[in-house]
């Protein structure tokens, strides 16, 4: 995760909410994007990420709350927002029967790119996504990864200042995935484009984003830089213990230790969550000897964002 830049708020949501009938899908979300920042939006399926993006991009009217661009509300008139916002949707929002070039030309015209600039823009974005030599081919003949790259290219034609990526690497090959990640990084670092990036892949967010918002059940449950989020877990140690065989007696014995909060069985042994810095190793060795079990490996894990997510939501990102 890159360092946090000091920057002014470019895009901001204030108590943004959306109800579908009686169901609150997004519940008073407050988030902001600083100019030139790359911000991650994490959350399991159904957390409300896509609905939030739809409201920010003016596709969906919020039930309540506000979306501000440089301090100006965009709820009633989002034309200014649309001019500087590019959205890469989760779906391949392209015409399958048209070629890559024809798609880009159509969307370029729809984005009102001037006629004398459109050719250059198309070639530039094709160059950026590495598909310049395939531009005459129909989208329906492309692989999933190539389609996703053109999907990104179509959002870049009007040279947006803010780019929202809604899970842009779902279901693609590693090569295309790397290419997309490089493109996002290049846009953010080299071109100074502000990025809001949602993904199921924690490592992508760790790699690309300065700050992260974690959503669950329509709410932001945590936000901050990586170190800020990891500090949530600063009061705990996660210990992986590999045993030569499983033992219910040992499990029960460990649960009774002081400072141990949680013990779970894993494929190879046990996962113990204990108070930070509490040394349980000697007690563990003693208990194992008593139960006739041999400890094969003992490792205190360095917490990751995945652990933070698990800790906060009780589920993994791909649940």
């Amino acid at each position: 995760m890159t360092e946090v830049k000091e920057c002014k708020k470019m895009l901001e949501t204030i108590k943004l909410s959306k109800n579908f009938k009686d169901k609150k899908v997004v519940d008073e979300i407050n988030l902001f994007l600083g100019e030139g920042e790359s911000v991650g939006l994490l959350g399991p399926n159904g957390a409300g990420k896509s609905t939030t993006i739809s409201m920010i991009s003016s596709l969906l009217k919020p039930t309540s709350g506000d979306v501000k661009l440089n301090g100006k509300s965009m709820i009633k008139d989002a034309a200014e927002m649309r001019r500087i916002l590019g959205v890469v949707p989760q779906e391949i929002a392209l015409y399958e029967e048209l070629s890559a070039y024809e798609n880009l030309k159509f969307f370029g015209r729809a984005y009102q790119v001037p006629k004398d600039k459109i050719e250059d823009r198309i070639q530039n974005v094709l160059e950026m996504v590495g598909l310049k030599d395939r531009q005459k081919e129909l989208i329906k003949t492309f692989s999933g990864g190539m389609k996703r790259r053109i999907n990104i290219a179509a959002a870049l034609l009007h040279e947006p200042k803010i780019l929202i990526f809604d899970e842009p690497t779902v279901g693609i090959d590693p090569q295309s995935r790397n290419h997309i990640l490089e493109t996002v990084r290049e846009l953010n670092v080299k071109h100074g484009t502000t990025v809001l990036y949602t993904s199921h892949y924690m490592e992508e967010v760790e790699q690309l984003c300065n700050r992260v918002y974690i959503m669950d059940h329509g709410k932001v449950i945590a936000s901050g830089t990586k170190s800020e989020l990891l500090s949530i877990l600063s009061s705990e140690d996660t210990i992986q213990v590999q045993l030569n065989k499983k033992s219910d007696v040992l499990l029960t014995e460990i649960k009774s230790f002081n400072h141990v909060y949680q013990v779970d069985e894993t494929d190879e042994g046990l996962r113990i969550i204990s108070r930070k810095g509490s040394n349980i190793l000697s007690d563990l060795v003693h208990a194992a000897e008593k139960a006739g079990i041999q400890i094969v490996n003992y490792q205190v894990e360095i917490p990751s964002l995945e652990d933070v997510f698990l800790h906060l939501t009780g589920k993994t990102l791909r649940d």
Partner: peptide, 13 residues
């Protein structure tokens, strides 16, 4: 269905 219409709405046309 393929969200192309949404993408058109996202343009200022």
């Amino acid at each position: 269905r393929e969200r192309v219409f949404n993408r058109i709405l996202l343009t200022n046309s």
